[in-house]
């Protein structure tokens, strides 16, 4: 495995170069905490893996992992759970990213469900996610016998995630019991498990969406082009209240009768599966523009993820069942 190289000396932090009495910015503090988590897990577990979803949070995780083990390589593989509904650009980016940093990439798919034509319209989003994401994830973890899995989830994303530990214990079925979580004090994480049990680890727990974007900007971290605004063909579906929903045209089965693709200057705010991820109208073509746009948002980033609307508390139910 090649040894990762830092980008250039220009990314050196001016704070730490100049003043002897250092005042660390919030991003430096978050970075230090996340790096410590990566190192702890890599030392305490036999078979850790990083769940690499190709999104912006995964991109930040990947950079933090590189930093944590520098000048050595990342000492665990990346695993991508491919539902078969990922944007083509994501897959290209994924392979190129893993290749360029010399990371081992594993891809796991629930082939039998994919072959059976599982999709969120034919089933419902809940059952589709259950098969293509949760089931595939659990199968993949079991297949490789991973005992710890890093995920890019953040506590600010959703209400039930606000209560997630950094080391989140999962029983033999991969399930989360929110009422019986281990207390987590200081930076003393309890990674002890019995055989068959596992820990999900969330090194970005304390990051917000804004922190992630600022870090990507400050560190010049590569992200998938879909995050930047471009003229893209979309199904445009009017919503009550004068707004509309932009659906990428990747899968024609999402189209309702009469819906024709239109070119819309748009981007994705978070990357999910093609049938369930709505785009937003946007002119933001650079990172500062994305950050500026984020400041104007009055709607949370998962609002364009159709999956969370299934029912009140749907994320909590998914997590109890083993979803990330």
């Amino acid at each position: 495995m090649p040894i990762a190289q830092p980008q250039s000396s220009s990314s050196r932090d001016p704070e730490t170069q100049e003043s002897p009495r250092l005042r660390l910015s919030h991003l430096k503090l978050l970075e230090a905490e996340s790096i410590a988590i990566f190192r702890e897990v890599a030392s305490e577990f036999e078979r850790p893996v990083m769940l690499y979803s190709v999104g912006k949070d995964s991109s930040v995780m990947l950079r933090l992992a590189q930093k944590a083990f520098f000048p050595g390589p990342i000492p665990f593989p990346l695993m991508h759970v491919d539902t078969g509904f990922k944007f083509a650009e994501m897959l290209t980016f994924r392979d190129e990213m893993a290749r360029s940093i010399g990371a081992e990439l594993l891809v796991w798919r629930n082939e039998s469900a994919i072959a059976a034509g599982t999709n969120p319209i034919a089933l419902d989003t809940k059952r589709c996610c259950g098969l293509l994401k949760t089931q595939a994830l659990l199968d993949g973890l079991r297949h490789y016998n991973f005992d710890a899995a890093f995920g890019g989830a953040r506590r600010d994303e959703e209400k039930s995630r606000a209560k997630e530990r950094i080391y989140s214990f999962r029983d033999e079925a991969g399930q989360w019991d929110p009422k019986n979580q281990r207390p987590e004090l200081w930076n003393l994480y309890n990674g002890r498990i019995h055989s068959g049990e596992s820990i999900r680890v969330f090194p970005l727990s304390n990051w917000t969406e804004m922190d992630v974007w600022q870090y990507i900007h400050a560190e010049n971290i590569p992200i998938v082009d879909l995050y930047f605004a471009k003229e893209r063909p979309m199904f445009v579906r009017p919503l009550p209240g004068g707004q509309d929903m932009l659906l990428p045209i990747e899968q024609d089965f999402v189209a309702r009768k009469g819906e024709k693709p239109q070119m819309v200057k748009s981007r994705l705010r978070s990357l999910g599966c093609t049938p369930c991820t709505g785009a937003i109208r946007s002119d933001a073509t650079t990172l500062p523009e994305i950050i500026a746009e984020l400041l104007q948002f009055r709607s949370s980033e998962r609002a364009n993820r159709i999956i969370d609307h299934d029912q009140e508390g749907s994320m909590e139910i998914k997590k109890r069942e083993g979803y990330f």
Binding site: A4, P6, S9, S11, R12, D13, T16, Q17, P20, L22, L24, K28, L29, E31, A32, E33, I35, A36, R39, Q66, K67, A68, F70, P71
Partner: peptide
């Protein structure tokens, strides 16, 4: 004091370094 961002002339808590 080794970091990905280059060697540091000084580091203090709570930085993660090598």
């Amino acid at each position: 004091i080794v970091t990905w961002d280059g060697d540091l002339p000084i580091a203090h808590a709570p930085l993660s370094v090598t």
